[in-house]
Each structure stands twice: as structure tokens, then as C-alpha cells.
Design a protein around this nucleic acid. Sequence first.
DNA 1: CGATATTTTGAAATAATTCAAAGGCAGTGG
DNA 2: CCACTGCCTTTGAATTATTTCAAAATATCG
Lengths: 222, 222
Amino acid sequence: MAKRDAGPELEFLFSQGVPKHFETGEHLMTEGAPSDYIFDILSGTVAIERNGSSGKRQILKFLNPPDFIGAASTPRYPNLATALTDVTTICYPRGPFDKALRVSPDFSENFRNSLTRMLEASNDHVFIVGQRSSIERIASFLLMLRASQANADHNFVNLPMTRTDIADFLGLTIETVSRAFGSLKGAGIITFSNSHSCRIVRLNQLREIGGRDDFTENRGRI
Amino acid sequence: MAKRDAGPELEFLFSQGVPKHFETGEHLMTEGAPSDYIFDILSGTVAIERNGSSGKRQILKFLNPPDFIGAASTPRYPNLATALTDVTTICYPRGPFDKALRVSPDFSENFRNSLTRMLEASNDHVFIVGQRSSIERIASFLLMLRASQANADHNFVNLPMTRTDIADFLGLTIETVSRAFGSLKGAGIITFSNSHSCRIVRLNQLREIGGRDDFTENRGRI
DNA sequence: CGATATTTTGAAATAATTCAAAGGCAGTGG
DNA sequence: CCACTGCCTTTGAATTATTTCAAAATATCG
């Protein structure tokens, strides 16, 4: 989320922020609810998901600090947001938020840039799910997590979500996810201490499998 | 694209617009090229695509009037834009465009809403490719085209793109696309006059298969 | 009309899913 | 502290949807 450093309207917006806490499994917003709030994530992991009429579930994004939720331009949220861990947020009402967007070009530009990044992340997601094998998807996924987690040990990756969540994010089943992790492990590319965290042992091989060059962060660059 | 009705900066921006024409197969922009221009599409169909290192191709979006291209916040375009038909555009340099975004809250809001809609369309895309069978993907695709084409005959759908393009959009092969069209035809749900246009005969059945309720346009609504 | 590219159809191969069961881990209560 | 319970994950075997490879049919274009 765009950070505080200018203007009385922004000061006002930030003064309107209310801390909100969610426990694992709670919904920050539900499909069809009025899109009255925007949440700035301070800690924890949130899944944005869509539940199809046929019972299918697709996770659209995993969000972590400093992401925010509630970009919807529609009057109601189109998707469901679920806390995968304990989550703390600051919750801003949409009124002052929109006001700040209109009044502050800097704030507006920051928000626009965030939207663009989310759009590019979605494009990456479509590419992964549309074109890649299960092992490649898992490799890309691990690389994405690695990039988004500023761990002291860069090759240690946290997996706060369940296998079901990973499967629903990557368009696979939990069994396929498990087998893909298994074959990366078997190839000596990653190791597991427990099932919710792993260590990348051969980063270059993982990058090769994951197709590092195919993603936004690494394209369109000088 | 946000349309003209206010302010001197917008007047200036619009005065800077240059008409550009592209023939089938030409690129409006290429991966890694400086993102110096934004194109307003006046006619024709453009594919935004990503070509993976392994030779895989994913079409991220099919764009038609009044869509625009070049939202990239990065200094270089991350994706490739290809004209699928003859395409006419107005090309705006990024400088005045960004200036207009900073100066006009209305213009900025329009652009932000466009970005949000694109993001929601991407989310739909992820859902389709991640969760649905080949026939369901084709059904959704036909419904999307139907919605985006304001044809006099609402159940007549143009397919300006090739089967390869459709396959690369839906994460399938051309053979699977062909077979899926074949089974919808066999079920009497659609008919073909030629391979680049079809008629929806049983819209409700197509909607059932396509999962109409699962998409942004039909959710988050009152 | 002939040549080339695109689309459709067919048969075999394969990646992923489904169904089924075992293994591992965390929390609860005795 | 240990056994029990329930949940999540892993592994196995069979099934299936989609892909791949190959060829025929159809459309497009000079």
C-alpha cells in the first residue's frame, strides 16, 4: 500500500484507518458484499479466491505485507478473501480512500502502480497455469514465494498455505502437488524439514525448471 | 480508453495522438521494448501474448475497441502485442499521457477503472484455465466473445482469431479446441457457417456449460 | 485452378486425476 | 506422558482427459 509522506487528505485517510485482526479461516471480504473497505495487510497471509458454481475453487492470489485488498471498482467485491494464517490489517473506509485518490496524484500513482503489478502477476499466473507442467508450476511457485519472502536465509521458503491451497492456486490436485514436491525432493533440488517449509538446495536447477525468464520481474527489463 | 470531455491537459494529450495502422501479424509492441506509447484501439483485434523460453505461447488477452494497450508501469513492455486482423489505433506518447493522469482526477479514475476491469478479466482467465474442462473453456470463451461483440444478431459470434490463437488463450491444443467445438456442434448448441464465425443456438445450455455465474460480470452485483 | 495453410478427424501415448489406503503430525484428554 | 482422534500429506494403482503424432479434409490466396 502507498505509504504516508504527504498532504492533509492523506493524513485524514490514514487517521480513518482501523486495525482489524482475523484468525485463520476468517473472511476479510466475501463475494457480493459491498466493497466498502480497503485492507492494508500488516502481517499474515491472505488468499483471494473464487468458488465456482460446480464447487471448484481457484485461488487467484496469495497476499502478504505490504499488499492491500479491495481494489474492486465494482460496488461489490467479486471475490472471497480468506485469512490463511492469523492476519492483522489496517482497514480504510472507501470514501476517504477514493477522496485521497482524487486529490493526491502521488497517492493515485502509487495505487495505479500497485494495480499494474497485480495485473502483471495475474498474467504470470495465467501463463503458469495455461502452459506449464505440474513440476514446472511447483518450481515457479517456490520461486515466487522465495521472491516475496525477505527471509534472512534467502533459500529458505515458508509454505503457510495447505497443499489444497497450493493445488487450487496452481490448477492441480493435492496429490499432483505432493508428487511434484516429491520429485523435486528426489532430484535433490529442495529439501523439507517439515511439510510447511522447505529449503532450496539447487537454485539454478529450480530456476531452469521454473522458467525464471518467463515472468514479469525478469522481463521488460534493461 | 477514457474519452475526451474536459480540461486543457487532456486537449493537449489528445492533440498528441497519432493514427497508426497495423496489418495482420504486425506487432504493436514487443517484449522488452521501451514502453513509450499507449495505443487506443479503434478497430480490429489485438492479442497480448507471452512467449515462454520453451517455445510455449500464452495469449493473455484479446483486445478490441474500445480497449487500450500499454498499461505497463515498467519502463519496458513485458508482453508482445500482435495484430490478429488489420488494426487501426491512435498512438499516444507516454509523457503527455502520464501528465494527464497526474493532472486530471477524472482521467486518472477512468484509467484506474480500466485497469481494475482488466485485472478482473485476468482473474476470470485464471479461473477458466485453472479449473475447467476443454468444453467448458470453449463455452466460456464463446460467451465472452458474445458479450464483447455488440453484434446486431446477439447470438452470432465472430472468431477473428485462429484455432491456434484460441488454443493458446485457453491453455489447450488446437486439436482439443477443434474437438470441443465439434462436440458443442454435435450437441446442437452451436452451428458453424464457416470456421471463423458461429451461431449460438441454445444459449442457456451454453451458459450452463460455460458457468456464466462464475465470472466477474455476473458476480459482485446486486 | 493449383499450392499452401488451417482445420478436422483418428489412433496411440501420456500427464494428471480419481479413488483408495497408509503415514505423519498436532491437539486433547485420560 | 502417552494414547487416541482427526486432519493433512504422501504413496499406490487404475482411469481419464488431453496431448501427441499422423493423415485427411477444408479453406485461403495468388
